[in-house]
Amino acid sequence: MQYIKTDGELWGSTMLPEGIVERWFIVSGETIGAGERIAEVRIEEALREIVAPADGRVTIVAVVNDIVEPGSVLATLETLRPD
């Protein structure tokens, strides 16, 4: 299992140490592909896109309007084994 986290680089030069989960483009339990857009996090006035790091089944941990910091877990990703 992998964790989908907020990358500290999303904050860049911002002064605020936190962001807000703005929306999910997927639902919990959905199978996603590597590089697929899955969520947006608002940091100050900018929306930052979160993409899947690998193929697998995602379980959402942080819901819309949750406050997140660099390194916060947004979801877990169970990689699928080939048949």
Rank of each mutant, 00 (worst) to 15 (best):
K5L: 09
K5D: 02
T6K: 04
T6I: 13
D7Q: 12
G8L: 08
E9P: 05
W11S: 00
W11N: 00
W11I: 00
T14D: 15
T14K: 12
L16G: 07
L16E: 14
P17N: 13
P17A: 07
P17L: 05
P17G: 10
P17S: 05
P17H: 04
G19E: 06
G19V: 15
I20V: 15
V21P: 03
V21R: 03
E22S: 10
W24V: 02
F25G: 04
I26F: 03
S28Y: 03
G29D: 11
E30I: 04
T31C: 11
I32N: 08
G33C: 10
A34M: 10
G35S: 04
G35I: 06
R37T: 15
R37D: 06
I38G: 02
A39I: 10
R42S: 04
I43C: 03
E44S: 08
E44V: 09
E45V: 12
R48Y: 11
E49I: 06
E49H: 06
E49M: 09
I50R: 00
I50A: 00
V51E: 12
V51I: 12
A52T: 02
P53E: 09
P53D: 05
P53L: 12
A54C: 01
A54M: 05
D55V: 06
G56T: 02
G56N: 08
G56A: 05
R57P: 01
R57M: 12
R57Q: 14
R57G: 00
V58Q: 05
T59D: 09
T59P: 00
T59I: 13
I60K: 02
V61D: 07
V61L: 15
A62W: 01
A62G: 04
A62I: 01
V63Y: 10
V63C: 04
V64I: 11
N65D: 13
N65H: 11
D66Y: 02
D66I: 10
D66W: 02
D66G: 04
I67R: 12
V68D: 01
G71M: 04
V73I: 15
A75G: 01
A75E: 01
A75P: 07
T76F: 05
T76L: 05
E78N: 08
T79V: 12
L80Q: 06
L80E: 13
P82K: 13
P82N: 11
P82I: 15
P82E: 14
D83S: 15
